[in-house]
Write a protein that binds this DNA or RNA. Structure first.
Lengths: 209, 209
DNA sequence: GTCATCATGGACCAGCCGGTCACGAACCCG
DNA sequence: CGGGTTCGTGACCGGCTGGTCCATGATGAC
């Protein structure tokens, strides 16, 4: 009944996400956005509503993906404690690359949380979700006898959220990958690992040049 | 020989720091800046050179202060390990207040490090300074027998940088003070503390409601 | 084939952006 | 007390901001 869109909404959001992640909300103009997404002024306007709305779509999408990335820690072939280490290594490698920038999630949290209630509540909810995923993984490791029973799984969960957020910020400022990996491995010392857990982890480091 | 200024340069920078910390570089207009600092357009221009220059002054000042705050960890009446804990508690309390925003240092690091070389190098240098201060304090604690000799002081130093940066980001997004304190205390579990060290720390938590 | 419907692209807008100019006021030194 | 130099104030600039209007084009249901 009507002319169909010539663009893929999800694709546009992905491109917008990249643009906003590069230069932040205030630092990204509509023109830049149009060039990055390839669509025309009016198309953006009646498909999304405006700059702010498109930003929120991109931001929510990024936040969901960030939580999902942590959620994957719950499944996998590795032992629970090995999956935690893998996650830390993954973040260090991603954020430690030469031209790595903080994710839109982190960038929006720092830029807008203080002034935009929706951003703030989304960020807080995402952090809580991530914490719970980490905590659940730690609890699983406890059940498997890899971590001492006296460990506080919830506290360790939020702790790893903070560590990863810190690694992301440091990495975005040019701190080397090897340093980030050190931070990740050092943070694992906060976990009271049992002998069994140490056995499951193996020697530890591979080749991460 | 000439008309003296009616404003205090340091005071202007302090106000500008607050304004930039609130809304970021791109998000703070010259008009906002003029209102915040109280000076006239031209005064700002011929005293500092422009928006970017004033921002750099504010940013460098904030970075220096941030390093200085960590540097204070080297001196104090407390035992070395106690001073580390105090620092973590201090950050948690500051960043955990209801209307806390990330410092200009953190905000600039996230917003501009990827695009501005001077910001990036300043941030990196500041992180390295902070790391060294933490590492030195840990080494001191090792010398005092509070921390096991096998601990890697350098790795722990950068680790605490990451933790504090993470706490700052989380706090700015509305995470509760108690949660931040938990993160701080949990992070200390990464330090292999000796019995003597534990003794010096005492029971641990006071009243931080 | 016709027509209602929606996407598109260009023109256009008021307002704000950071920055500049010209001029009068304030000051210290001689 | 006058001269030279700096400072503060207002008006002003071109350009860009996010947002809107409207004519045109493409589409598919009937």
């Amino acid at each position: 009944m009507a002319r169909p869109r010539t663009f893929d909404e999800a694709d546009v959001i992905a491109r917008a996400r990249k643009a906003f992640a590069d230069t932040g909300f205030a630092g990204t103009s509509l023109d830049t956005l149009l060039e990055a997404t390839g669509l025309a002024r009016q198309s953006l306007y009646n498909a999304f509503g405006g700059k702010k709305e498109l930003f929120m779509r991109a931001f929510l999408s990024d936040a969901a993906e960030a939580v999902e990335a942590v959620e994957s820690i719950r499944h996998g072939e590795d032992s629970p404690i090995g999956r935690i280490r893998s996650q830390l290594v993954k973040v260090a490698v991603e954020q430690g690359s030469a031209q790595a920038a903080p994710s839109l999630f982190t960038k929006a949290a720092v830029e807008l949380s203080a002034r935009d209630a929706e951003v703030a509540s989304t960020v807080e909810a995402a952090f809580e979700s991530m914490s719970r995923h980490y905590a659940a993984c730690i609890a699983e490791a406890q059940a498997a006898g890899e971590i001492e029973a006296y460990a506080d799984a919830d506290a360790l969960g939020t702790f790893f959220c903070a560590v990863i957020e810190g690694m992301s910020t440091l990495g975005g400022s040019g701190v080397a990958r090897a340093t980030l990996l050190d931070i990740g491995f050092t943070s694992m010392a906060a976990i009271p690992i049992t002998d069994l857990g140490r056995e499951h982890l193996g020697t530890g480091d591979g080749d991460w040049s």
